[in-house]
């Protein structure tokens, strides 16, 4: 099997800030790799280098066997890019956007119209096809944006945070579309801040933090590396929250004051669960809900970085 994307020791700095500090990745043909990390980790920079929009400082990136720096035109002809912001033409309608993109991809004239129609149907945009894009909702824009990058049926697709800012319904619709693409044997590199998304969709996950890959493996592998069960507790009263956190302590403690939830790693034994509950009960702190579950990728991130996925705004 050929490797669709090969990244070797890729580095990139903006002014004095190092954005990528030597990244190595391989995506086999027909597989999906999710690049997981918080804002500012270097996800978009990686995608921009792979899609020939940005030159790397060092290292090498091969897409479809072509060096992105040496043969950008060949790379461009086999990729589809969906960026973080829906890059669609506001004043044209959905169909015009698709047909324009088809012409710019140099599809034959006879192929453009049927392909545009096919994508409109596939992405649930037939009704909106003749309306200007500026009247579209956020979810419709994203769908059109993805449809635009698929007009030439590219074998390799880059999806840069395709569901960021979408409502749950649109997100699920987007996931279905991405799953269908994978069934068609397309190679996908997806970036996401949503651990659930990477877990659900990807064959492999690379965790990116501050320009370095801190962990890589299948979703199951990554989760098993963290090793233990987790207890998730929701405190009833907000006023009790700080007290509860200071009382519980424990390894891999994670707190979310807004949702009044506390998570800790345990061995999953009844004894351990009872200990935690006894502490809270003794202090007169009421519990709203409690659950025991296998680690999520949020926990994975915490495990590998030793910190929360505190997103810094770009």
């Amino acid at each position: 099997m050929t490797d669709a994307i090969v990244i070797k020791n890729l580095t990139k700095s903006f002014k004095n800030q190092k954005v990528l500090e030597g990244i190595n990745l391989v995506v086999p043909q027909g597989k999906m790799l999710a690049l997981l990390g918080p804002n500012g980790a270097g996800k978009t920079t990686t995608i921009r280098i792979l899609s020939t929009l940005l030159n790397a400082d060092g290292g090498q990136a091969l897409v479809g066997g072509f060096d992105v720096a040496r043969e950008p035109k060949r790379v461009r002809s086999i990729i589809g890019l969906t960026g973080q912001y829906a890059a669609v033409d506001e004043y044209l309608n959905g169909r015009e956007n698709l047909e324009m993109m088809g012409a710019l991809y140099h599809l034959g004239k006879s192929k453009i119209k049927p392909r545009a129609q096919e994508l409109l149907e596939q992405f649930d945009l037939v009704e909106a096809a003749s309306k200007p894009v500026k009247t579209y909702s956020g979810g419709m824009r994203r769908r059109l944006d993805l449809a635009l990058s698929l007009i030439s049926t590219p074998p390799i697709i880059f999806l840069d945070e395709p569901t960021t800012g979408l409502d749950p319904r649109s997100r699920i619709l987007m996931w279905d579309i991405i799953k269908k693409l994978m069934e068609q044997g397309v190679t996908i590199l997806l970036t996401t801040q949503y651990l659930e998304e990477a877990d659900k969709l990807a064959d492999r996950i690379a965790v990116l933090d501050k320009g370095k890959i801190i962990a890589e493996g299948t979703p199951t592998e990554l989760k098993s590396r963290v090793g233990s069960e987790r207890i998730e507790i929701t405190i009833d009263h907000k006023s009790d929250f700080k007290k509860a956190v200071s009382l519980i302590q424990g390894s891999g403690l994670r707190q979310n004051p807004e949702e009044r939830s506390i998570g800790i790693s345990t061995d999953g034994s009844v004894k351990e669960i009872k200990r935690v509950l006894d502490i809270l009960d003794g202090a007169g702190i009421e519990i709203d809900a409690m659950s025991v579950h296998t680690p999520t990728l949020d926990d994975v991130f915490l495990h590998f970085t030793g910190k929360e996925t505190n997103n810094i705004t770009q």
Partner: peptide
């Protein structure tokens, strides 16, 4: 330059 399965695709579309 490349002779893998992507090469043909690239040749066809990237023709300058």
């Amino acid at each position: 330059a490349a002779t893998n399965s992507f090469a043909q695709e690239a040749e066809r579309k990237a023709e300058e």
